[in-house]
Each structure stands twice: as structure tokens, then as C-alpha cells.
Write a protein that binds this DNA or RNA. Structure first.
Length: 312
DNA sequence: ACTATTTCCTGGATGC
DNA sequence: TGCATCCAGGAAATAG
């Protein structure tokens, strides 16, 4: 389940491997859930663009795209190979075509040279660099054919992931980056909020990138119970929470994230931060500090783990 | 303006 | 062995 450290790890790995490569053509699956932008807009925005950079914003992976300047043709549908499709998929590949919708999409595209491809991995999404002959696994929703001869594939069984495109600078993830939050801005996030601090930490409009694992781990390190109402927490305690969040995220990034179910990074490597979890997934086990059994409760439908002895 | 709850998804685990 | 049921959770949608 990719949260900020996992997404950071993946984005760094992808940056190393695809920066400078050019998207020659795009295949999109027929499932509509993963597509946040119209299929035609995604295809039109990606094709014939050079990947100038890959970075993370919150839990989003952002590919910075720029137009190829040499020998580019605007529409090259003929060069698109349509002979390869995911197995068992009999639907024709999605194409940017001349439907009224596609025309409308194209008409609103600005003429500037840069754009962005934004990927949210959801729960089970992954981006994989493959050789073309590699079997196209089930739940493959997008394939970008790169000029280097490789393919970048988006696979997501549960389809909570999202793909979208934006023109340069248009994409703006909500909330502030936890690793960049100064004390004043951090305090302001929670001021006057009656919601449980756990819910506030998960709210991407406040802080972006913190998910269930790192919220629980941060609250443990800060000594705060997940149900504590945000507005009842003192400035000093929030100060401690801010540092705890940063510390947890930095340590997790250093270890390549947490591999809980099947998470692997862009190189197929597992992360190791799960070995450092002090409360997440440890229900009933003794607290590593005070031996009190870790409790699990549900807040806003999310399992929340804490130590009744250490957290107040 | 906030906050709380429901919904979307599939694979793996569990139970009978 | 087979089949039903439950659970994981990010974020959008809906309800209060």
C-alpha cells in the first residue's frame, strides 16, 4: 500500500530509469475506473513526449513531459502498433480518434510545450518497466511504449489507482508536504478541528502523503492516541507530532518503504521499513517500550493501532 | 465549513 | 474440495 515513502522510492527508481526516454505510443485498457482524464486526452498528452523528470507530490507520481522538438508529427496513428494486447482482452485498444469528445478534448489543449502525467497507485497499483516480450499480466491498464524499446506498464488489480494528465503546472496536489512543513503551518492545519488526530493526518487536503501505516507510527512516536481530538492537543504535543511524522517518513524512505503485501519498488526490490513498525500490524503483541499489548480500533473505517500505555 | 459515513474493487484468508 | 463471507484501504461521493 504505497504511501509517501513508497511513492518516493518508486519515483526515484523510475526517474533513474526513464528520464530522457520518449513515449512513442500508448495503449489503454477498457476499464474506466483508473482513468481520471479522458482516454483521448491521456493518449494525446503522452504520445511523442519526452520524460523530462519524474517526481513525487504527496502520494502522486508526476512525470514531467516535454515535446520532442525534432521530427515530430502531430498525429501518427499509423505508426501505432495494435497487434499486441493484454491476453484475454478482446476489446480494441483505446485510440485518440475523431469522436466529438476527442475533438473537444483536443480543442482545450493549450499549445505550451510541457505537460504532466500523474499517477496515483491507490492500494495495489504498480508501474513496471518491461521488455515488450514480457507477458502482459492481468489487470494491466496502460502500456507506454518507449523509444528505448522498453515499455512502462501500469498494473492495478483493485483499480483504486488513477491516471490523469495536466498541462504544465496545472496539477496541484492539495495539502502541504509533511517533510517541508514548518511549525506554524503544521499547527495551523489542526487548529480548531474536532476530528480525531488520526483522521486529520490521513486527510490529504491538510497533509499530503501520510497514509494509515505512517499515521499510526507517527502517533505512537508522539505519544498521542489516534482518537484524540485535534483541537485538544497542545502546541508542544503537536510540535512533537510534527517531528515524529518527519522522522518516520525519512526513516521509511531510507529503508525503501514498507513491504506489507506485495509492494515492490521500480526495480522490483522490497522495502524494509515494515521491520521497524512499532504498532501497525502488531495488535495483541507487547509494546516494544512498555510491554502493554497493542490495541487495534477502527476510526473512520480504518484500523488504527496504538499502545494504551504509551499514548494518551 | 466541517465532519462522519458509504462506496468503489479484487485477492487472499477464513469458516463451515 | 468448494463455496460464501470478510477484510484490506485512498479518496471521492454522499449525508448529516
Amino acid at each position: 500500500m504505497p504511501e509517501l515513502p513508497e511513492v518516493e522510492t518508486i519515483a526515484r527508481g523510475l526517474a533513474k530509469r526513464v528520464t530522457g526516454d520518449v513515449v512513442e505510443s500508448v495503449w489503454l485498457g477498457q476499464k474506466k475506473e483508473p482513468l481520471k482524464s479522458p482516454a483521448s486526452a491521456i493518449v494525446a498528452t503522452l504520445e511523442h513526449r519526452r520524460i523530462a523528470a519524474v517526481r513525487r507530490m504527496g502520494k502522486h507520481i508526476v512525470f514531467e513531459l516535454e515535446k520532442e522538438s525534432v521530427g515530430r508529427t502531430l498525429l501518427s496513428a499509423k505508426s501505432r502498433r495494435s497487434d499486441r494486447k493484454p491476453r484475454g482482452d478482446t476489446t480494441a485498444p483505446t485510440q485518440s480518434s475523431s469522436t466529438p469528445q476527442a475533438e473537444a478534448d483536443r480543442s482545450v489543449r493549450p499549445t505550451n510545450n510541457s505537460a504532466q502525467w500523474i499517477v496515483h497507485l491507490g492500494m495495489t497499483g504498480s508501474l513496471r518497466i518491461c521488455e515488450p516480450q514480457t507477458e502482459v499480466v492481468k489487470h494491466t491498464h496502460a502500456i507506454l511504449r518507449l523509444s528505448s524499446g522498453r515499455e512502462l506498464r501500469f498494473v492495478d488489480p483493485r483499480r483504486f489507482g488513477r491516471l490523469s494528465v495536466a498541462q504544465a503546472g496545472d496539477f496541484d496536489a492539495t495539502g502541504i508536504e509533511p517533510l517541508e512543513a514548518d511549525l506554524d503551518r503544521f499547527l495551523a492545519l489542526f487548529h480548531g478541528r474536532k476530528t480525531p488526530i488520526k483522521s486529520a493526518l490521513l486527510n490529504q487536503k491538510l497533509l499530503r502523503g501520510v497514509g494509515n501505516i505512517y499515521a499510526d507510527e507517527s502517533l505512537f512516536r508522539a505519544g498521542l492516541r489516534p482518537r484524540r481530538r485535534a483541537s485538544t492537543i497542545t502546541r508542544a504535543q503537536l510540535g512533537k507530532l510534527r517531528l515524529a511524522v518527519k522522522e518516520v517518513l525519512k526513516e521509511a524512505i531510507a529503508l525503501g518503504g514498507s513491504s506489507i503485501s506485495d509492494y515492490v519498488d521500480a526495480d522490483g526490490e522490497e522495502g524494509f521499513f515494515q521491520l521497524q513498525h512499532r504498532v501497525y500490524g502488531r495488535e495483541g503483541e507487547p509494546c516494544l517500550v512498555c510491554k502493554t499489548p497493542i490495541k487495534r480500533i477502527v476510526i473512520a473505517g480504518r484500523s488504527s493501532h496504538y499502545c494504551p500505555g504509551c499514548q494518551t
